[in-house]
Design a protein around this nucleic acid. Structure first.
Lengths: 126, 126
DNA sequence: TTATTTTCGCAACTAAGTTGCAATAATATA
DNA sequence: TATATTATTGCAACTTAGTTGCGAAAATAA
């Protein structure tokens, strides 16, 4: 269920996340790694790294899956409500290290929340 | 760009939303309407109804597209930040008529936000 | 009633993500 | 170190959401 073996694929994907403060879409990762490994391997390594708690996944504005490594990824669970930001101009996605308080809702148990803020990043608003 | 003609397909889809307080996934709509119209028509009618402002769309927890009619749909724009709730047990999705305040973020312009709360609905928490 | 223009159905397509299985590579054991 | 064990990978084929082009049909305008 988690990462048992440190293979080339695992190390390569981990190093990409270590060197990037931004989130990465699976589509981009598959493209970027197409000479290094099969796309099935990309999907499976990402799944294992998420189960291990090394990275976390979320859905971007167009329904695509994104992964990122953030400080909170060292924690045991990913139920924390930290928002993501996607720039509508350049497409970049990043984790925001802020906390958005979610009110309790009558007659419902809130277990987690996906919050995606959309707008323009600092580069694109110049 | 919007709904110019009141066809059978348009009326049928609109009546489904009038009679449902819940959001509906496109996949479910295509299945439900498969004897009435082609799936391409479902996609195109939904798109037109959204452009007209009759319904609004958002992304569910698995990346699928959902549509719903809510009170705010009568308004002119859909930039309002109203959250959606998805029950992780039965899969039902609904609009929440509450306002989640989004803080302003340094160096970024926030134009809109997708907020999906996940948990258990009143039926499933019994 | 006819002409115009939007909408629909169909079939074929695209792209993200999944699955089964045999081959390979990493680790454990002797 | 050599061998056995088990996780991981590559490949090809598949599934499913969503899209596109085009001719036919339906809605509205003239």
């Amino acid at each position: 269920m988690s990462v048992k073996r440190k293979t080339k694929s695992v190390n390569l994907i981990l190093s990409i996340f270590e060197n990037s403060s931004e989130a990465l879409s699976v589509v981009d990762l598959v493209e970027q790694l197409k000479n290094d490994m099969n796309k099935t391997t990309v999907y499976r390594v990402l799944e294992r790294l998420e189960n291990e708690g090394a990275i976390h996944s979320f859905t971007g504005s167009n329904g695509l899956t994104w992964y990122a490594k953030c400080r909170e990824c060292d924690a045991h669970h990913h139920n924390d409500i930290h928002p993501h930001f996607q720039c509508e101009k350049c497409g970049k996605v990043e984790c925001l290290e802020i906390n958005i308080p979610i009110p309790s809702i009558e007659n419902r148990i809130i277990e987690s929340a996906d919050v995606l803020l959309k707008g323009q990043c600092s580069d694109c608003m110049k």
